[in-house]
Design a protein around this nucleic acid. Structure first.
Length: 423
RNA sequence: GGUGGGUUGCCCGAGCGGCCAAUGGGAGCGGACUGUAAAUCCGCCGGCUCUGCCUUCAGUGGUUCAAAUCCACUACCCACCA
């Protein structure tokens, strides 16, 4: 059963490194095991990059294991040096606490908190805060060799590039302590995480062996990379967030739909819960008929459903279909148009007042950064009202442009749409 | 502690008294081609009340008709020497 899980993860290319593989497989085969995955609150929301490991955690639960989702209320205050070449700026305690709450909330929807292998939520502040510095240094610190700590990639690379504070240097000890605590409290003997976490996780494995004399396991997941070499999940405007207020479900869906062809197969392997057969079929269609973008659509639909729910996913897909469809946008009936536009960045103008220019309207929706940028777009021929190109720089929509008496669709370039509603 | 070098637009990186909103590359944006993809080609790429005006070249103050460019101090980085 569990061997199947590991095989599945291999098929998905979701395993970067593990502690001794056979031992891990044997351990997992022995029953329903506790495992943990941690997130540090470095923002008010998780983003798509975090979703990679979270998806793996979910796969473990579906295979019968007990997931522990840890939010780093303590470690988030210290700052993980992994994968960074400069010191983090520390966030205020209240801010971090607020983020912990929000992230907690997001995790709830992703795991099953009922049943025999119910998921557990943890916050490392619970066991870190009560420990005094003296006890921490005596009981935990004593088991760490500075030589080993220095040799970790996250530390050594920083020593070469501007240094590292004692605070961040200590991070791996804190994370190791978390693993030890969860091992004691929840009998947790597996920690998973992104491959950049290997050093931190192994620090915990070592600590558990030293203190408890027990074997603990580790499994890391490769960081996703894009075909063009850039980081997965980042756009020019920043990360793709799971919080619908930070990244709209429409934008979220579009992000996946617009994936590079070359990335789609791996994205499906990583995120999809479809059967291997179904996925193989999608890979085929990607090769034989890439223009249809069936695989893109399936990917966007599934991930959006997972994060925002099926109802919302359907809405945004329909919106995209309506707005990018072959049919004339003016032919859309009012309710279809209204629900489609609801998913877009928008602005409103008062009925009766004079229409602002296209430049002012698009700027108001936030689709462009400045009026200069908006003007440039018009000059370059990328400005549209209801899919009709405009070319005069101070062009204003007229009453004739109103669809159903109250809507105007603005477009910038090929795929950026925004809505204007007259109220 | 000593000496020398550095800090430029989203990133890298030229400029070393006026011709500088500042060369070049990357990212980004628009167009063509396509499939709301990639590659390629062309154009754009600080802001605004846009034939002009305003704010930028670590910070502060100064020299000058005129400074990113010169001087002084401050902060941070890097190198060599102790």
């Amino acid at each position: 059963m569990t061997t199947a899980l590991l095989e599945d993860l291999k098929w998905r290319k979701s395993i970067a490194q593990t502690t001794e593989f056979d031992a891990l497989a044997k351990f997992l085969d022995g029953g329903s095991r506790s495992l943990y995955l941690g997130f540090d609150p470095t923002a008010p929301s998780l983003h798509i990059g975090n979703l990679v490991a979270l998806t793996v955690l979910r796969r473990f639960q579906l295979a019968g294991h007990k997931p522990i989702a840890l939010v780093g209320g303590a470690t988030g205050l210290v700052g993980d040096p992994s994968g960074r070449n400069s010191e983090r700026t520390l966030n205020e305690v209240e801010v971090v606490n607020e983020w912990v709450e929000k992230i907690h909330h997001q995790l709830v929807g992703f795991l099953d908190f009922s049943g025999s292998n119910a998921a557990i939520m943890a916050n490392n502040l619970d066991w870190t805060a009560p420990v005094s510095a003296i006890h921490f240094l005596r009981d935990i610190g004593k088991h760490f060799s500075v030589n080993q700590m220095l040799s970790k990639d996250s530390v050594s690379s920083r020593l070469e590039s501007g240094g590292i504070s004692y605070t961040e240097f200590s991070y791996q000890v804190l994370q190791a302590f978390d693993y030890l605590e969860l091992n004691r409290r929840e009998d947790c003997s597996l920690q998973i995480g992104g491959s950049d976490q290997w050093g931190n996780i192994v620090a915990g494995v070592d600590l558990i062996r030293r203190v408890e004399g027990k074997a603990a396991h580790a499994l890391t997941i490769p960081l996703l990379t894009k075909a063009d070499g850039s980081k997965f999940g980042k756009t020019a405007d920043g990360s793709i967030w799971l919080d619908p207020n930070m990244t709209s479900p429409y934008a979220f869906f579009q992000f996946f739909l617009n994936s590079d062809d070359r990335d789609v197969e791996q994205l499906l392997r990583t995120f999809s819960f479809k059967s291997h057969d179904e996925l193989e079929d999608l890979f085929d269609s990607l090769k034989t008929n890439p223009g249809a973008r069936e695989a893109h659509r399936a990917l966007a639909r599934e991930v959006t459903t997972l994060i925002h729910g099926s109802e919302q996913a359907e809405k945004v897909e329909n919106a995209a279909k309506a707005l990018f469809g072959q049919s004339e946008i003016r032919d859309l009936d009012e309710s279809t148009l209204e629900s489609a536009l609801k998913e877009l960045p928008r602005t409103t103008i008062n009925r009766g007042s004079e229409f602002p220019t296209w430049v002012d309207l698009i700027t108001a929706t936030g689709v462009v950064d400045s009026k200069s940028a908006a003007r440039r777009v018009v000059k370059e021929g990328g400005a549209y009202i209801n899919n009709v190109k405009i070319s005069v720089e101070d062009h204003k929509p007229s009453l004739d442009d109103l669809m159903h008496g109250r809507f105007i669709v603005l477009r910038k370039g090929k795929r950026d749409l925004a809505a204007v509603e007259v109220v």
